[in-house]
């Protein structure tokens, strides 16, 4: 089973990180799932792959009643993000999935019907959960061509999908504690996966304008406080869209 940890709580408003699955086979990339709840209502960010669904579902059930999950937020179309969709729908067919309009007819290959998807326009949109007003923030081409992050202004938390991802050993902590040391595990990933320097610059400006205490990626560790700005600055200067000819062979 995975580990669940509350990363933000204020009254009924809570963010839960579901991370580090010791039972995960090593050929499957490790993912973080995030659950935001307002009282009994919950939304799951990047619910993960078909392979890890049993682990994610039982970990979530330990922390809250999964019947309260009314929505999924799929930052993009990748299998590690949303290939568990059919199983979530089997448990609750009324769950809605927010995703880029670009992928609304591709993700149904993993499951779901026309009614399942709420397509997000390119400029983003507000997403209401109970009393919370979340915001889908554009992050196109980072790395997917239709890509969104989810911002919670009340928690000052940005779920950043693959941006900020790092490939860490399984026993790594949940939070970044030594930025210089951590970022070494993120560099190769960002250079290769992120496709556009222009899109990256755009995102860095947008992110710098948001008030963020916690930057929560789908892989690796969470950046807090000063490390959020450190990450944005680092990313701004990094040249992306580079293929290392020696790697991947």
């Amino acid at each position: 089973m995975k580990v669940a940890q509350t990363i933000f709580q204020s009254g009924d408003h809570r963010w839960l990180a579901i991370t580090r699955d010791p039972a995960r086979p090593d050929y499957v990339i490790d993912t973080n799932e995030y659950l935001v709840t307002d009282g009994t209502q919950a939304l799951m960010c990047d619910p993960g792959g078909l392979e890890i669904f049993p682990s994610v579902f039982s970990t979530v059930s330990n922390e809250c009643n999964p019947n309260g999950i009314t929505a999924l937020f799929s930052s993009h179309q990748d299998p590690d993000v949303i290939s568990s969709l059919a199983l979530w729908l089997e448990f609750n067919p009324t769950i809605r999935c927010y995703t880029s309009w670009l992928w609304a007819s591709f993700i149904p290959h993993f499951g779901g019907t026309r009614e399942t998807f709420v397509p997000i326009p390119d400029q983003g949109m507000p997403i209401v959960l109970g009393a919370l007003k979340l915001q889908a923030v554009p992050a196109h081409y980072l790395h997917s061509s239709g890509n969104f992050h989810l911002y919670d202004p009340a928690a000052r938390l940005l779920f950043s999908g693959d941006v900020g991802a790092a490939l860490l050993p399984i026993d790594a902590g949940l939070f970044v504690t030594d930025f210089a040391q951590h970022i070494r595990h993120a560099e190769g990933f960002h250079r290769r996966w992120m496709g556009s320097n222009e899109a990256k610059r755009d995102w860095c400006e947008r992110a710098a304008g948001l008030d963020i205490d916690l930057l929560c990626p789908q892989h690796g560790a969470i950046y807090c406080g000063q490390d959020v700005q450190r990450f944005i600055n680092w990313f701004d200067e990094l040249e992306v869209g580079v293929v290392d000819r020696k790697a991947g062979t």
Partner: peptide
Amino acid sequence: SDELLYAVTYVMRHAR
């Protein structure tokens, strides 16, 4: 109860 949840979810994945 945790184990049972895991096992039933696993069956569901297999049945799919």
